Simulated scan of single mutants.
Amino acid sequence: MSTAYVVVTVLGAVLAGFSAASLLLGAEWTVKPLADYGVPRAWWTWLGVAKAAGAAGLLAGLLVPVIGVLAAAGLVLYFLGAAATVARARWFSHLPFPLIYGAPAAASLMLWF
């Protein structure tokens, strides 16, 4: 396990955890755009839990690699879906945000292989 893999994985876990916490705690700068994009409020808790699980999975993957691979793949798919939702809502100026949050998960996945 390389140092780069550990650093990128921990960064990905921190970013996903921060994103999950901001959603689960109802930070206005997180939930207002979700409402603007048309994401149903009933989904918000589940989306936050999915991000939190991904963050925990990335960290667990440092000890059990298959968990980290699955978590990274899940987070990549999650944030690609978030980017698609932003694009569908035509808020192109917000498109970098899900891509920035998903980049460390993608890098972690690439560094593992």
Rank of each mutant, 00 (worst) to 15 (best):
M1N: 11
M1R: 15
M1F: 11
T3C: 10
T3P: 07
Y5Q: 15
V6R: 12
V6E: 07
V6P: 00
V7M: 04
V7C: 03
V7G: 04
V7S: 01
T9K: 00
L11T: 13
A13N: 01
A13F: 02
V14H: 05
L15R: 08
A16R: 06
G17M: 03
G17K: 02
F18T: 12
S19F: 11
S19P: 03
A20D: 09
A20Q: 06
A20H: 07
A21T: 06
A21M: 06
S22L: 02
S22C: 04
S22E: 03
L23D: 02
L24W: 00
L24Y: 01
L25D: 09
L25W: 12
A27L: 15
A27C: 08
V31P: 04
P33D: 11
P33M: 11
L34C: 07
L34I: 04
A35I: 07
D36Y: 11
G38L: 02
V39L: 13
V39R: 15
R41C: 08
R41P: 06
A42F: 10
W43N: 14
W44A: 04
W46F: 14
L47C: 05
L47Q: 11
G48E: 02
A50G: 08
A52K: 02
A53L: 15
A53M: 14
A53Q: 09
G54R: 02
A55T: 13
G57I: 02
G57R: 00
L58M: 00
A60E: 09
G61P: 08
L62Y: 11
L62A: 13
V64E: 13
V64I: 13
P65Q: 15
P65S: 14
V66P: 00
V66C: 01
I67L: 15
I67F: 10
I67E: 03
G68P: 00
L70V: 11
A71T: 10
A73V: 08
G74H: 06
G74V: 04
V76P: 04
L77V: 10
L77T: 00
Y78Q: 05
L80G: 05
L80I: 07
L80A: 14
G81N: 06
G81Q: 06
G81S: 07
A82C: 08
A84K: 00
A84Q: 05
V86M: 07
V86H: 04
A87L: 11
R88Y: 10
W91N: 09
F92I: 12
F92N: 12
S93D: 15
H94I: 07
H94K: 11
L95F: 12
P96D: 02
P96Q: 06
P98I: 09
P98H: 08
L99T: 03
I100Q: 08
Y101M: 15
G102I: 04
G102W: 01
A103D: 00
P104E: 01
P104F: 03
A105T: 05
L109Y: 01
L109S: 01
W112V: 03
